[in-house]
């Protein structure tokens, strides 16, 4: 484990890397300096807190506490995915539902197949990975839905006028949204190991684990993310397209 320890001094020195985007922002007059320092400060504070919380949870090794931590991760991911939805009629509970189902089904399969054990040091990072990827996929799904309902408003209206129910009228847009949301995970699965060495695998190799052993975990992560992003996108898509309609199956006015 010593091989991967970062000394405080090394960490402080590596802060010089933050000065690179700051210099770019200053030179190119991008106005991002404040935002860069704020985001770095926030990341440090969040990670320090999470580090101590995780240390505590792992020491206590209590199933209920582990479950609470996964719920905390899911809620935060849902909150952020929901914020990415441009629809003013978005509903937070839909993001929560999609993340709860997507995360726990994926996690459940991993537990049942004994790929991971019900230990906080395994469950919490895995939940973070699942929920984080689902959050990105759902955000993408919401954005493509919004673009679809804006660009294809006339088509949706015409289908409604022909007597289609809201699902039939939205199906083309809905399919495209789900497909777009799933595509990055599928694409990244195609290049994994060739272009990028993902976090899980890199972390294990950093920790001195045999790369051949590390790839097993990465394969598991690939399966897991395909399932999670698929479930998250499909549930979020099917729940949220209705937000574009009122209770009378009429397309809401754009705001």
């Amino acid at each position: 484990m010593k091989a991967m320890a970062v000394s405080d001094l090394s960490l402080i020195l590596s802060f010089a890397l933050v000065l690179v985007p700051v210099a770019i922002s200053w030179k190119e007059k991008l106005g991002l300096t404040r935002d860069i320092f704020y985001s770095v400060g926030r990341a440090i504070v969040q990670l320090v807190i999470v580090g101590y919380v995780l240390k505590f949870i792992m020491q206590v090794n209590n199933a209920l506490l582990t479950l609470l931590m996964t719920l905390f991760i899911i809620f935060n991911a849902a909150w952020n995915a929901n914020k990415r939805d441009p629809n003013p009629n978005r509903q937070l509970w839909q993001s929560i539902m999609a993340l709860l189902i997507g995360t726990y089904i994926t996690l459940g399969v991993l537990l049942l197949t004994q790929t991971v054990k019900l230990k906080p040091m395994q469950i919490i990072p895995i939940t973070g990975m699942i929920a984080g990827n689902e959050m990105v996929a759902m955000g993408l799904c919401y954005k493509v839905l919004a673009t679809g309902f804006h660009d294809q408003r006339q088509q949706v209206l015409e289908k409604i006028a022909l007597g289609a129910d809201v699902k039939t009228a939205s199906m083309t847009i809905l399919r495209r949204s789900i497909k777009t949301a799933m595509q990055p995970t599928i694409d990244s699965a195609k290049t994994v190991g060739l272009v990028n060495l993902p976090g899980m695998m890199s972390g294990l190799i950093f920790a001195g684990v045999d790369p051949v052993y590390a790839i097993k975990y990465q394969i598991m992560v690939t399966f897991m993310l395909l399932s999670a992003t698929g479930l998250g996108a499909v549930i979020a898509g099917y729940l949220s397209y209705r937000n574009y309609f009122n209770k009378r199956s009429q397309l809401r006015e754009e705001q």
């Binding site: 006339q154 209206l157 015409e158 409604i160 006028a161 022909l162 007597g163 009378r248 199956s249 009429q250």
Partner: peptide, 13 residues
């Protein structure tokens, strides 16, 4: 039920 109704009252754009 407006969905059923619109199958009887058809709007052409």
């Amino acid at each position: 039920d407006l969905v059923q109704y619109r199958r009887q009252v058809s709007y052409c754009f």
